[in-house]
Design a protein around this nucleic acid. Structure first.
Lengths: 207, 207
DNA sequence: AATCGTTTGTGAATATGTTATCATTATGTC
DNA sequence: GACATAATGATAACATATTCACAAACGATT
């Protein structure tokens, strides 16, 4: 149990999907579920679901299924619901502010501690989150902060290097550019354009 | 060439990454590249790159490498750069408006034709893009529109069903909820929280 | 024009990820 | 309390994806 090292990438990508689906089920008043039922819900084969779950321990009971509540707790624990991550937003433009306004963060995956921006007129407070000038990154970076959300549109690589320098280990990348990081730092690109490109390709294939 | 049907999923997910990297290279004035060089740039093995490329034809020259400009053209063509996709945004709240303000759309992957929202006060124009009431979805949907960007926060599944009904084939999903679609419709979830959850999991594994 | 060095593109080998099968073990019933 | 039922979890078969290894092809050089 909890040897995260060897959880397949593909499995890892499904964990948040399971968690969301389980939340929906709980909301619907369902407290017990079998892999076969869950399968139709998330469109993943029952066997795959069971294998995915098994990496985190023996979560189910034979002849019974899984307890929705327990599953949510376990996934929450592993995916950061319980340990309060301190997140920072880098770039307080349109998108950055939209993200700050998402008041869904607390108790889901941590909280946005503060934001940074180069232009002086963005500095101050936005949606109750302090916005500091980029130059104060080192001083204002919250203790133990590992994850940054990147919502800038210029000087991208430069800023990334800066973030790496102060110890950021994971970047959620909203820029449209290609960025490079050293080993040990993970980038998750959130690019609408890329998503649409994939959709276009697939949709064409079907036609 | 161009039998999209059998391009592996994993490969497809890398295409937008290559395209972005190639654009960066072109910007840096590099007009010729070898798979080995590109490899360090995108952190994908040279052989994998060559195989990925080969699905689209024989794009390179032995003993020489690839021409950056030609590659960009080819990827553009396959990923929707040339055929003008008509996109719609469903939900004109904070996030929807941030997306509309991204004036990067034109000639990258198509254009945002219009947006829809349930609340009357959002209807009108935002950043030069018309916003129609949700009730007029059927009438105002652009001819041939296949892809919708979903940036709503309530009545999610209901809205998805509606979109499927009018013929949408691909959804870029910004909601935090779990949604279900029939076969033939593809959903790409863009969920910051999920991304962070994956990062937390991986970052913990490394520690 | 022939040779050399280099890099692509692909068939074969390996590794990774998914699905089928089944023994095991729990629940619920008589 | 023993038995039938049913769903998990693990092992084995399969499928997909990555990497190796090398022949074919191009540019550069003599």
């Amino acid at each position: 149990m909890s040897n995260h090292q060897n959880v397949p990438k593909a499995t890892l990508q499904r964990y948040p999907v399971y968690l969301k689906a389980l939340r929906k089920l709980q909301h619907l008043g369902i407290s017990r579920i079998m892999s076969r039922e869950l399968s139709e819900f998330v469109d993943v084969e029952p066997t795959t679901i069971r294998r995915d779950f098994s990496f985190l321990g023996s979560l189910g009971k034979q002849g019974y299924g899984y307890d929705v509540g327990s599953l949510i707790e376990i996934f929450d624990a592993h995916l950061g619901g319980s340990f309060q991550e301190k997140l920072i937003i880098v770039g307080a433009g349109n998108l950055g502010r939209a993200l700050m306004n998402y008041n869904r963060w607390n108790h889901v995956v941590g909280e946005i501690a503060c934001a940074f921006d180069v232009s002086a007129d963005k500095v101050g407070n936005a949606y109750e989150i302090p916005v500091y000038p980029m130059s104060q990154l080192k001083e204002k970076l919250p203790e133990g902060c590992r994850i940054a959300i990147l919502s800038i549109s210029s000087n991208v690589q430069e800023t990334v290097d800066l973030l790496v320098e102060v110890g950021i280990k994971g970047i959620v990348d909203f820029t449209h550019e290609h960025i490079q990081v050293p080993k040990g730092v993970t980038v998750k690109a959130v690019d609408v354009v890329s998503m649409i490109q994939e959709l276009v390709f697939e949709t064409n294939a079907m036609k």
